[in-house]
Write a protein that binds this DNA or RNA. Structure first.
Ligand SMILES: [Mn+2]
Ligand SMILES: [Mn+2]
Ligand SMILES: [Zn+2]
Ligand SMILES: [Zn+2]
Lengths: 145, 145
DNA sequence: GTGATATTGAGAATCACAATCAACATGACC
DNA sequence: GGTCATGTTGATTGTGATTCTCAATATCAC
């Protein structure tokens, strides 16, 4: 997948690229660049942040990673499979947990609302912010400031 | 409203504050700081951007303005009335038009989805990106790059 | 008016990220 | 295996929005 993308564009392999990509898929979830840099470095000495940014942008271009932009001012990437469904996110304001969900009814209503205003939807962003079960149970769970 | 807020916190009035607030409400819509600064200046000589940022933050704190953060990396503010309903946004990727909508069914579904994952929703963000009627009609309308 | 206190403005600082560019690594080709 | 054109890296600088700093200034209660 990445290999064919690299080949088809006259790009080259590199030790850094491999380390970053492998680390990213090992981590899973919704990974901020900063964390990815830390992990990659503890696995392969020093790799510059610039290279991590560049590589993640590459992964996004070939459809293997999705950039996500929640409220905290830093881009996160999550692994994407070609056959994976679109999904949206629940974000816990207490512990920062991110839960994914799919809801066809909401998607359908979005299209309908947009159409009723003359819009043709290209993409959308739906984020629900609140407290997860754990954070509501434990008076104030770890992770909260 | 602003007056009582200022009084209740030991704040003071100022020529700049008044100019910014009045200009903001005159403009209406979803105003980027940069535009607000330009308008304010053509009305009251030179007012520093720092003051505009500070004043808009004040307005937000006392509930008279809502900060909005669409995809373009700059914060916009929109006027908020105490009795105004929550609404979400349709954003045209062609001309940048921003259309507001309310949809109770979507809101209800959001709550239901959240609850089914143990979350208690505090806020949410729903943005639909696409092409407005005008931009789809005219091959490529003004405003597009 | 006076004085304590809040506000302003200019510029520096921050923060995430993009751009530069010389040194270096890769791999197609011999 | 060696060459070489070309892609990649990393240190550093640039950028754009926003915040911070702090001396100068304006406000307002008394
Ligand atoms: Mn996700
Ligand atoms: Mn709005
Ligand atoms: Zn939580
Ligand atoms: Zn449009």
């Amino acid at each position: 997948m990445l290999g064919s993308f690299i080949a088809s564009r006259g790009l080259k392999h590199s030790r850094q690229r491999d380390a970053i990509v492998e680390t990213f898929f090992e981590m899973g979830g919704h990974v901020p660049i900063e964390e990815l840099v830390a992990r990659v470095r503890q696995r392969d000495g020093h790799i510059s942040v610039a290279t991590v940014y560049r590589t993640m942008k590459l992964l996004a271009e070939c459809g293997l990673a999705l950039p996500r932009q929640f409220g905290d001012g830093q881009t996160r990437y999550e692994p994407a499979s070609v056959d994976a469904h679109h999904h949206d996110h629940l974000i816990c304001t207490g512990c920062g947990a991110i839960v994914e969900f799919e809801n066809e009814d909401i998607e359908a209503l979005q299209l309908r609302v947009a159409r009723s205003h003359g819009f043709e939807v290209e993409s959308h962003k739906l984020e629900l912010y609140g407290r997860c079960a754990g954070c509501r149970a434990g008076a104030g769970a770890e992770g909260s400031p």
